[in-house]
Write a protein that binds this DNA or RNA. Structure first.
Lengths: 140, 140
DNA sequence: CTAAGTGCAAATAATTTGCAGGAAG
DNA sequence: CTTCCTGCAAATTATTTGCACTTAG
């Protein structure tokens, strides 16, 4: 249970473990695709945990500050978030239904990043690689 | 002049060529990094062309519909736009000053896209690959 | 002329913030 | 208890839309 370990770490570091906080971690741990603030709120609701949207945003800020989650920008309405403890991966979003799926890829980009640093002097910290297309269902 | 050609095409297709429209095209043609709605408005202003922000957004919609520009999502405040007629490329944004630079890269992703299609059944239409890091200046 | 372009004010939508009350440790 | 968490309402920011007016062709 990734979520359990994260909760332990939070406790060890003197952070409070609220119902919403631990439920969010277990939701993020189970769902293998990035979730928006609204989606997180709804998934909490299904567990019987009703919180204000403000709380969701503050919880997101907190978890980002703890390096537990990070944002994923796909260019549509809302920012999504996912656990940072996952192996590095990318996403593909269906341009019709909007569904997002994780894509396990190897580090094809390491060499490219070195090239870029050589060419531009930038000290690269991270990258975002997202794919877009029609999922099987929407091809019909 | 890329902008000139685009203007001719618009005229040929029966679209009007307003001061703002042609100025936007020449601005986008010159600036080799994606621009936000607000930046576009300000750059027009510097040319003495004062337009409402609404006009900027409507012009962006129009140019996207004409396949002349497309959006670039970097995950911060605003969406940026750039000419589609440019060779396919990517960007790197400084995580400190926010500056965005174009990166000419070859099609390293073609093979990866084929893999993804084989593995997931998605019919891939496009991808977004952005890099983030510290620019030379901000490393000091 | 006449459809397309434009400004302005108001509407949305995502996210942020101030403040006062409530709960975790 | 005391700091952190939370709700609520109001503020902010990016973008959209309705309506009446203006202009390019």
């Amino acid at each position: 249970m990734d979520a359990r370990i994260l909760i332990e770490v939070l406790q060890k570091n003197g952070h409070r473990v609220t119902k919403a906080r631990s439920a969010l971690l277990s939701i993020l741990d189970k769902k293998h695709s990035p979730l928006s603030a609204m989606e997180l709120q709804k998934l909490l609701e299904r567990k019987g945990i009703i919180v204000n949207k403000t709380t969701i945003y503050r919880e997101i800020d907190f978890l980002i500050a703890q390096n537990i989650i990070h944002s994923v920008a796909l260019g549509d309405e809302a920012t999504r978030y996912e656990l940072s403890s996952r192996d590095h991966h990318h996403h593909i979003q269906c341009t019709s239904c909007g569904n997002v799926v994780d894509l396990p890829l190897n580090n094809e980009l390491k060499e490219i990043e070195k090239q870029i640093t050589r060419g531009t002097g930038y000290m690269i910290e991270k990258h975002a690689l997202e794919f877009f297309g029609l999922c099987k269902n929407c091809q019909k």
